[in-house]
Amino acid sequence: MAQKKNKKTIRLISRAALLLILAAILIYAITSKDKVKVLAEGDTAPDFELVDLEGNEHRLSDYKGQGVFLNFWGTWCPPCKKEMPHMEDLYKDFEAKGVHILTVNVGEPKVKIELFRDDMDLSFPMLWDKNKTVMDLYNIKPLPTTFLINPEGKITKVIKQGMTEQQIYEYLESIQPK
């Protein structure tokens, strides 16, 4: 009798296990939509190395321990243009507090970016993603897209639209090192 009971338990467990595995695979297949890994909140921001308009190299890992406000933009995109002056206004203050604003232009001619910068009187680093490598790495679809990266190097938020000065302020504050 004991043996029979035992056999019954084994049967129940093995059947349940197989059904659970199949269900788990199915749920995974339904929920996984992207064939490429898309960065999400909580992921570690992948490191990169780009030069700015002056030729200075910037690595994301250089800013470890500090907050990074990483903004992808193009000169033709009106909301990008609109939020730039707000970023400029807050840039200096937050630089002192350990939050850096890095902007990445997605592969436009260098002169075009320089003209834009001079026209708008911007002083934060403008990185030039000539080959669109970092744009693909961060899977940028709409412009502007902004990543908030905390001092631990984790992405805390992905913003896929233009921002008001108030929002930018709050976002910058949110990644300020303690």
């Binding site: 297949a29 996984s32 064939k35 490429v36 890994k37 669109k132």
Partner: peptide, 20 residues
Amino acid sequence: GIPGFYVDEAMWLREGETRN
């Protein structure tokens, strides 16, 4: 469906352009 197993992408590449 798992990243790394299957890629099917398209891109435009201009003459003279170098792109990821």
